[in-house]
Each structure stands twice: as structure tokens, then as C-alpha cells.
Design a protein around this nucleic acid. Structure first.
Lengths: 353, 353
DNA sequence: TTGAAAGCGCTAACAC
DNA sequence: GTGTTAGCGCTTTCAA
């Protein structure tokens, strides 16, 4: 069934059918109704390719999930408690606004070509990029596309240094720095002074932010930053487990009394290490994670963690990209969402002895 | 940059460019190379809409995630530990085969129109439907589309009764019945006789299968099926929590010694109820769940559970649908994947007293 | 082995 | 207001 068939049945021309479909004002109510009736009766759907070819939008946005370092991580990105809800909320919002979402994973630099391809092939009107790395090279390629795009969790400073604050480009971030600072301050408030930090990957914006917040919160409170207390966890549970175990076994006399982990996944590794060495949480060691993954609240003791407003971010991303697709954007924009410290059982006031 | 531009630069006609792009055999190596060079130099990508309009495939498959009963459940489908890895694996496989994936959620009967629309608008070559319900009405609509489609976890008997074993249609299931039977037999093997069951939604295939397996395993082992021991959990943690609490408080003298829960989510509810009532797992009560969600292994005590081969199913779905899109299918097909019982700490041999 | 030309289903500029 | 017509960028007969 094509628009011509509808036209014939309704006794009008294809142009009129097109005008009805596209809600043009210059068609009288009577004609509109007549045409709509036929359309509905026959479940007619205009062919998207033909519309796109004739200059219309595709009403499709691309979501590219970049996860290069995790290419060989069995615990892939959708298992990842950050991306799953992000994808969920994004689909919800986009679908509710009548948009389709094309999702593509990017597990290698090569895969990244898919982003460009999806545009050049005319598959999508705009795109969103979210991932475990925030590669400026990629950001530049995207910016050069001159097409609506949203970057999730990118470093504004780097973006500005590279003059990537272009039109049709937007950045949506969470306030990781603020969240991490809250976590460290909370521990300090409980009397802790020897606070260890399990670091994430430094090639991610959030990894760097959380690290910087730890350092500066310690320093601004006059606390010593002990290098032995800074563990390289790479955001991976396994690494954190090994590192925490090593630290607890080594620093026997002067163990830290608290750990701030740059994500919950690594906090789980820390918990395992503690269990193995018989170190009690929170009695002997307080622990705070980051991300507030689902398990956090279910653990025993439940894990304090910094919650990111993933849903709000995804919703904002959907609205923002669709807005840009439909109206274009005359400016660069940036949104930054606040975090929330979820205080649970894994932290305790330090008892002086 | 259009094919005509490439043609001019290469000194050939658009037809020849098209032949090169589509890998036709009747173009000499020399010409092919010449054209390819220009294409690569200019990062030319043929417009998908134009190709589709001219009769080619879109190389896009649709993934429809149906979750009608969960429309208002804050803990939506992607949080769902079943769908997240399914989506992950499907994307992986499809993308690796050069296919794009269009994902759409279906939260209402109305939304279901999107499935039909996606086809009629020419957005996708084939589709996969996965969800929390297995509605025969929907299956029929899909079958009538006469287009490559895969149904995940549908009841074959119902499908056959409705004569929906059509060409271009395939079903991929997990052996829930077998898995549930294994779980119950395991408990029986540990000496349990009073085994309670937390039931899932009966409007799902897996919900029914797990229920039936429980009943028949009990009966075939000569054990009494006590109606008070069959709890309506609806696959929801909250319901399970309430029901288990009610049962434990009521059936005080003759408490069950074991519980088989139709999913892990509900097992978590059971754990909470036990904790509250001071019932020790596994000392006083053994517990097995279903799905083997990520938390299961991390709980203390860790939760025994039946693992579904989600990844394998998703991979099979991707391969199968792409195969159907490319070659069509002259028959109906069905694949059924085995489950695996993960024995952990939440079950104990019954000590006779 | 190659090119010319028709056509896929739609939109939009133009004419009436 | 409405119809006619010329593309949009590609594939694919058909003819050479």
C-alpha cells in the first residue's frame, strides 16, 4: 500500500495525502478527515526510506556505547550497572516521543567508524555517545560531522581546549567530583584520617574526577595522602580485590581505617578481600563505593555509595537530542547533574583506642 | 557525496559503482579496484534509504522488548537481569555481522503497533520479540506479517494450537521445565519433603513451566503438594517477601524445610522475610532460586539457582534472524536451550530430628 | 563488460 | 486548496 493507493481511494492526489500525513495547514478539515479515514482503514504507513530520501528526517537516533577497554571483559557493558539503566531510560523517553533508537556497540577504534557510517548512510538524525572512555579523538570526529550529537560524561576542559564547543553538540555530565568529595568528607566527618582510595581508570572523565576529589578533599582537611593507600583498581572488581588484599597484608600496623572506592564493583572486590582476611566491615574498616548499583543496598552490611542520577541524565539526553534534531541548535550546551550520597551500614564512626 | 560523484571521479557509470558496492561478479578486477580506491579515499557510504527504496535490505533488525505488566514497575525491564544481558549479547552478535539493531520497548497493547509499523515503514528486515508476557494475540499479528521473526520463550503448544508454526517464524526457548525439575529434585535429594514454591506470573511461559515442573516433580517423588506452600509471588520481590513472611508466621508448627522460588528476585524477598523472622538459611530453611542473577553468587550465604543460557540464546537469535533475513526460511523452526543448576550455600541436607 | 534509463515511494516547488 | 511534476540516491533491467 503506497500513498498513491490512498490517494486513489480518497479521490485526491498524492500531494494531498502527503500534506495530510505531514500535518500541513493548507488542507481543509473535510479533506483531511476523508484521507485519514482511508489511511487508518488500511493501516497505511508511509515508507521511511522514501520519506528520508525526499528530505524528511528518519526519526531515529543512534546510541553508541563505547567500551574499548572492556572488549575482552566477560562482564560487558550491559551487565554494567551504569549503562543498563541508561539505555532503559533513553529508550523509554525516545520511544515515548515517537523516536526509534538504533543501538550500536563500539568495542574497537575501528568500530567507531560505525558512528560516522550511521550518519552518512542516513540512518539516524542525531546521536548519543556514552562509554567507558572519553576519547577526544572520537569527540573531534563527531564534532566534525556537524550533526546533532550528545556526549555523556566528557571532560569540559578538554573539550574547550580542543575548541569542540560547537553548535549541535551538547555534553551531559554528572557531578562526580562533588559526589566523591561528599563521600570523603563523610568519612572524615566520622573521624577517619587514614583513608585509602581505590582508583578507577584515569582515561575516563569520571575516573579522574573521583581521584582528584579524593586528593583535594584529603588535603583541604589537612590529611596526609599516603601513596600506599592509593590503589589502582581500573574500575575492575578483580584488580580491587588483589590490591586491597595486598594493602591489608602489607600495611599491617598502619592499616587505613576507611576506604573510598571509585566504583561499587571495586568495593565488592574490597569486601571479598576483607572477608578473606577476616577484616570486619564496618568495625575495622569503613567503606564507601560509587554508582549505587542495585546490589549495594542488598549487601550485608549494606554498602554506602554515591548515587548518580542516571535516569535523569538519560531522560535529559533524549529530550535534548530530539530537540536538536528537530530545531537544530544555535549553540553548544552543557548540563551537569548532582549526585547523592547514600549512607548505609558499611561506614562507622572511628572509635579511638 | 553520491554514487554519481564516485562514478565521475572513477570515470565509470553509476551502474558500475553500484556493481562494485554490491560485489557483482561481472566487473573486472581492474575496474573494481579503481572504483574502490575512490570510494575509500572519499569515505563514501551509500545512502541506506536510497538502497532500501531500490529494493535492497536495510540490514537492520528490530528488537522489541515487551513489558506490559511492568509498565508501572519502577524496576523496569532493563534493570531486569534477564533482558540486559540478552540485549547485550544480541547487539554484539548482530553488530559483528554488520547489522544494526533498532530497539523498541512495548509497554502497552497500543505500543505493540510499533512492531507492525517498523516493518511497514521499511525500517527493519526482521524482528525479535522478547518479553515478560507471551501473548498469543501478538504472536498472531506477527505471524500474519509474513516476515522474518523470532519469538523468545513462547509456548510451543499454544503456538501449534493456533497454527502459528509458519515459515519465517522461529522460536527460541530455554528448558525451564527441566531446570525447575532439577532444582526440586536437588532439594528432594537433600532429604527435603516439605518444599514450598514461590510462583511467578502464570501468563508467562516460563512462569507456567516452572510451576508445572514443581508440581510434577513433587508428585513423581511421592511428595504431598501442600496448597499452603504454594505462594503467589508474581515474579515480584515484594510479593514474595509478604507471602513468605505470612507463610512462616502461619504455618508455625509445620513450616516447610525448603523453598523453591520461580526467580531470584523473589528469592531475595524470601531472604529478607527470613532475616526479619530470624529464620536461618540454610540451617532452618533451604532455598533455590531461578535465573542466576549476578547477585546470587555474591549473597551471604550465596544463593543456589538455575542458570539460563541467555547469552547463547541471544547469539542464536541473532544468527537465526539474520539468516532468515538473508535467505528466507522455508520452514518453521524451534530451538531449546538447556539450563544448569548452580549449587551454592543456600541449600543444606535436611537434618532429621 | 558497461552505460542508459526506468523506477522504488515519497516530498515540495510550482502552477492552476 | 489541490494537482502536476521533478527530484531524492540508489539498483536493475535492457541494450549495446
Amino acid at each position: 500500500m503506497r500513498s498513491e493507493d490512498i490517494a486513489k481511494l480518497a479521490g485526491v492526489s498524492r500531494s494531498t495525502v502527503s500534506r495530510v500525513i505531514n500535518n500541513y495547514s493548507n488542507v481543509p478539515d473535510k479533506t483531511r478527515k476523508k484521507v485519514m479515514k482511508i489511511i487508518e482503514e488500511h493501516h497505511y504507513e508511509p515508507n521511511t526510506s522514501a520519506r528520508a530520501l525526499a528530505g524528511k528526517k528518519t526519526n531515529t537516533i543512534g546510541l553508541f556505547v563505547v567500551s574499548i577497554t572492556e572488549k575482552h571483559n566477560p562482564n560487558r557493558i550491559y551487565q554494567n550497572n551504569y549503562f543498563a539503566p541508561f539505555v532503559d531510560a533513553l529508550l523509554d523517553s525516545a520511544n515515548a516521543m515517537g523516536y526509534y533508537v538504533l543501538i550500536h556497540t563500539v568495542y574497537s577504534e575501528d568500530d567507531f567508524q560505525k558512528v560516522r557510517q550511521a550518519f552518512q548512510q542516513g540512518r539516524i538524525d542525531g546521536g548519543i555517545i556514552v562509554g567507558t572512555e572519553n576519547n577526544m579523538e572520537m569527540a573531534r570526529i563527531i564534532a566534525d560531522l556537524q550533526v546533532p550529537f550528545i556526549l555523556i560524561d566528557y571532560d569540559m576542559r578538554e573539550l574547550l581546549e580542543n575548541r569542540l564547543d560547537r553548535n549541535n553538540l551538547a555534553v551531559i555530565n554528572s557531578k562526580d567530583y562533588e559526589g566523591a568529595a561528599k563521600a570523603v568528607e563523610h568519612l572524615i566527618g566520622l573521624g577517619h584520617q587514614r583513608i585509602a582510595f581505590i582508583s578507577g581508570r584515569q582515561n575516563t572523565y569520571s575516573g579522574r574526577q573521583r581521584y582528584e576529589a579524593y586528593i583535594s578533599s584529603m588535603e583541604s582537611n589537612g590529611l596526609e595522602v599516603n601513596k600506599d593507600y592509593i590503589l589502582q583498581g581500573e574500575f575492575l572488581k578483580m584488580n580491587a580485590y588483589e590490591e586491597v588484599k595486598r594493602m591489608l597484608m602489607m600495611a599491617d600496623g598502619v592499616r587505613p581505617t576507611a576506604i573510598f572506592s571509585a566504583n561499587d564493583e571495586m568495593a565488592l572486590g574490597a569486601i571479598e578481600a576483607c572477608k578473606e582476611l577476616g577484616v570486619s566491615i564496618p568495625n575495622e574498616l569503613s567503606l564507601i563505593g560509587f554508582d549505587d548499583i542495585q546490589v549495594a543496598a542488598q549487601l550485608n552490611p549494606s554498602l554506602s555509595s554515591v548515587r548518580l542520577p542516571i535516569f535523569e541524565m538519560a531522560k535529559a539526553a533524549a529530550h535534548s537530542i530530539i530537540d536538536m534534531c528537530e530545531k537544530g541548535s544555535e549553540s553548544f550546551s552543557m548540563l551537569s547533574f548532582p549526585t547523592q550520597l547514600m549512607v548505609r551500614e558499611s561506614c562507622q564512626r572511628l572509635v579511638k583506642d
